[in-house]
């Protein structure tokens, strides 16, 4: 199942590469051809994100059988998740300046990409390294790219539409969520009698901080 999810991620990554290549070619096309390219692009992103949803739901179903303690498929994103997150961020940055003839198509594409970004930022936020704030240099680089590139307000301003949710906010909220859960855990340890499970988690986090 992990191999299948990785294959789907590879396909989507190839799709993002295709979008990058199309951007330069699109300039030399006729207006009717540009509209076709925009439409196909929107379809590919739409189908790709749907495909991804099916796979992530299948992973959850399998995890239900295996039990969340052992062989948890939802946590098996691994290293490819970080790389894929970079690809998504780059695609978002690129498509923000994509001159869609029809702004509605542009909005649909961006919405789908933000959903994917939100999914993977959530997956990475549950990663142990991420929770204790021990970011690697690779993570730091995509954080910077995200902070610089995720300027959805400029995109909306260009298209003359209302602002939607900011992916930067999503990312920050997931990070705050992780820290809040750790803080809650520590607070419950200070004020209430803690269970054996919580005790283990707090000790593990403290050990990592040292």
């Amino acid at each position: 199942m992990k191999r299948r999810t990785e294959a789907a991620a590879t396909l989507l990554a190839a799709l993002f590469q295709l979008l990058r290549a199309l951007k330069s070619k699109r300039a030399s096309m006729k207006p009717s051809e540009r509209r076709l390219v925009d439409y196909d692009l929107a379809m590919m992103v739409h189908i790709g994100s749907d495909l991804h949803k099916y796979l992530s739901w299948s992973d959850l179903s399998i995890a239900e059988i295996q039990g969340f303690g052992e062989g948890d498929c939802t946590r098996s994103t691994g290293d490819y998740a970080e790389k894929f997150m970079q690809d998504i961020n780059y695609a978002i940055t690129m498509l923000q300046s994509w001159p869609f003839d029809n702004p509605l198509i542009g909005r649909q594409v961006m919405k789908r990409l933000y959903e994917l970004q939100s999914y993977y930022s959530d997956q990475l936020a549950h990663d142990d390294e991420f929770i204790i704030g021990n970011t690697t240099s690779e993570q730091a680089s995509w954080e910077q790219k995200l902070a610089v590139g995720a300027d959805i307000h400029s995109f909306n301003h260009e298209q003359g539409t209302r602002p939607t949710s900011n992916p930067d906010d999503n990312y920050i909220l997931t990070k705050i969520g992780s820290w809040t859960s750790v803080k809650k855990l520590n607070d419950s340890h200070a004020h209430q009698g803690r269970s054996v499970k919580q005790d283990g988690q707090v000790t593990a986090i403290e050990r990592r901080r040292i």
Binding site: R4, E6, A7, T10, L11
Partner: peptide
């Protein structure tokens, strides 16, 4: 998954 890889 093999087919997806080939398509990519």
């Amino acid at each position: 998954s093999n087919l997806m890889q080939f398509e990519a």
